[in-house]
Structure formats: C-alpha cells, structure tokens
C-alpha cells in the first residue's frame, strides 16, 4: 500500500496551510487519495502552525499524521516541536535563515534558503512556502510538476498566480541548498518510493 505523509510547519502567517493545500490539490489532480489537515492557534499569526498532507493509493482512515516521511520546517520552534515525529530515514527540509539549531536526526537533512530566495526574487519573504514546494517536489517527486503548477493557479488569488508560480519555479531550480546530514541506515528516503508510478 503506497502512502506518503508530509508535515509542513512553521509560524502562523508563513503560509504553511496554503502550501499543504496546494500539495494536496496537486495530488488529487494526479489521482491519489488525499487528506490535508491543519492546526493553528486562535491568533492570526505568530503562533505555531502546521499543515499535514497524506497521499495514498488506498482510502485514508485516520486523517492525522503520527510519524511523517517528510518534514518541512519554517521556524525554530516548529523544528523543536516536530522533529521527534520524523520517521527514521525520512526527509527533513529546514529554512536556512530562520532555523539556527539543527538536531542530529536519522534522516536526510537539507538546509534550504527559502526565505532568502523569496526575498531576493520577489522582495517578499511570504513566498518562502512556494520556494519550499519547489524544492520539496524536486527532491521527493511527489506530484507531477504540471499538477503542482495547476494547483497553485487554482488555489491562490488570480493577481498572485504569477508571483507564486515564479517562487515555486525558483524553488525547483534552486541549486544552493545543502545536504547537511545524510542518513546511512537501512533506508534512505529517495523520492516518492512509496507510490507506484502512474
């Protein structure tokens, strides 16, 4: 049974819910069963927020993630809280500028200048979530590229489609992220190995 569980977390206002929503929609376009859930505080921004996406061949019962295959973190606090839930051999993407203290984990750890790229390319750090989606799909190949782009176009407001697509493509093309820590255990996460090809 093919199944990949992804958690994207950070602070409210960073767009982690939107990123999860777009990834989930893209996976539905590709024909998978998908559940996307979110958790956030009562405040509009500033408190921890997380978004979870389960992509599966078979129908999905329990909708929450206990252990994730992929963890994307956009704040130090989110990393501290969520790193324990990453599966052995999983994939961890962390924002270079916002996360300082990276724990030793049994996972493939990438440091991604997502916020920096968003600021340099579009002058707005709020596009960091799209940069992350680009890097994520490049590394893990979760959905077809055109599905992700369609999902972005179908999700964000019309006047923001171009800038979000630009940030996503920047993420896909990003070469500067670094593999910080390679996992040498029994299983290393290489792409979307749980899902059989379409």
């Amino acid at each position: 049974m093919g199944r990949t569980e992804i958690r994207i977390c950070g602070l409210g206002g960073q767009g982690v819910v939107l990123a999860g929503q777009i990834l989930g929609r893209a996976a539905v376009y590709d024909g998978w069963n998908v559940v996307q859930t979110q958790s956030y505080g009562a405040e509009a921004r500033g408190t921890t927020a997380k978004s979870e996406v389960i992509i599966s061949e078979s129908p999905i019962g329990f909708p929450m993630i206990r252990k994730c295959d992929i963890l994307v973190v956009m704040s130090q606090e989110a990393l501290d809280v969520n790193v324990k839930d990453l599966k052995r051999g999983g994939l961890l993407l962390i924002d270079e500028g916002i996360v300082k203290d990276v724990p030793k984990v049994n996972a493939k750890v990438y440091v991604v200048p997502a916020t920096k790229t968003a600021e340099e390319t579009l002058g707005e750090r709020l596009y960091a979530n799209m940069v992350f989606l680009g890097v994520l799909n490049k590394l893990a190949n979760l959905v077809r590229d055109e599905s992700m782009e369609k999902a972005i176009a179908d999700t964000v407001p019309k006047n923001a489609v171009a800038s979000n697509l630009l940030a996503y493509r920047k993420g896909r093309m990003l070469e500067t992220f670094t593999l910080l820590h390679e996992f040498f255990g029994s299983r290393s996460y290489v792409g979307n190995e749980h899902l059989s090809p379409l």
């Binding site: 929609r25 998908v34 979110q38």
Partner: peptide, 9 residues
C-alpha cells in the same frame, strides 16, 4: 473542526 477543516477528494 476536523471534518469541517480538512481537505479531501
């Protein structure tokens, strides 16, 4: 809250 806020096919 969970059923109302989650997204599914």
């Amino acid at each position: 809250e969970v059923v109302a806020h989650m997204r599914e096919k």
